[in-house]
Every structure is written in C-alpha cells, then in structure tokens.
Amino acid sequence: MNHARSTKKRTGGRRRAVRKKRKHELGSAPTETQVGDQKLKTVETQGGNTKVRAVTTDVASVSTNGGVESATIEDVVENASNPNYVRRNIITKGAIIETDLGRARVTSRPGQDGQVNAVLLDE
C-alpha cells in the first residue's frame, strides 16, 4: 500500500507526480534468503552504514533450554508469510525450519541482518 497522497483530486481528475523519488526515498528488492551454502552480501545503507544480507545460508543459532546451539538447516517446513516460500526453501522471520536439533521458528530477519536465529519448538 502506498502511504503517499491520493493520485485523484476531489474533482475526480488525476493528480500528477511533482517529481521523481529522491535517493533516500528509493526502496530495494527484498533479499529472499534460501537454504544452501552460506553466501553473504554487503549493502550500503543511509549514513554510510552497511548491512550484511544472507543470500543463502545453512546455519542457524537455535535457542534451547540448555542455551544456544549452532544447528544445520535442512529444510523450510512452514512459512506463514507466503506458502510459495516453503516450496522455494526461502527463510523469513516467523518461518518454521527443520534443523538437526528439531523444528525451530526463525526470530531474526536473515535478509536484513545476515544470520538465522531461531527458537526450538517443543513438540
């Protein structure tokens, strides 16, 4: 949804854009993190800062009752944000992944911060 002014005037006429988007108003395509050998991408953000994005990853930091353990991601089991992501093995926040420790829910945003943090599900 667009949070800008309506493209229609009160009269029903069309309101035309005053200018194109400025550099800081531009967005970027989402990084859809897939299951695979770890590949990271560094992007520049506003203010000269950087963000590390996970293009593909197979490692997750899984929080268990005994602490945090490193686990290998085997598969994406469920993804509430988009059912097609399960078929394409795309990891997003809230996705349920199959690891060697068991099923876990992703709590981080791998496309934004380059790592997968997850909480083990008790089944």
Rank of each mutant, 00 (worst) to 15 (best):
T7N: 11
T57E: 04
Q115M: 08
R88W: 13
E44K: 12
D100F: 08
Q112K: 14
E78C: 01
T92M: 05
R53K: 12
T50Y: 13
D75P: 08
R14H: 05
L120A: 10
G114Y: 05
K39W: 03
R53C: 12
P110D: 01
Y85R: 10
V62N: 00
Q46D: 08
M1I: 14
P110M: 00
T7A: 13
R109P: 06
N82M: 07
Q115T: 11
K8C: 06
A54S: 02
V62F: 02
A71S: 03
T31C: 15
Q38S: 06
A60I: 03
T92E: 09
R16E: 14
E98M: 10
M1T: 12
I91V: 14
T7D: 14
T31N: 12
G67R: 05
D58F: 04
R10L: 12
G66N: 14
P30G: 00
K9V: 00
T42Y: 05
G94Q: 01
V68Q: 13
N84G: 13
A60S: 01
R103V: 06
I96G: 00
V106D: 03
L101T: 04
K41W: 01
E78H: 11
D37A: 09
G102W: 04
T42D: 04
A118I: 10
A29L: 12
Q46E: 11
G111Y: 02
L121A: 04
E32L: 15
T56Y: 00
N49D: 10
G36D: 09
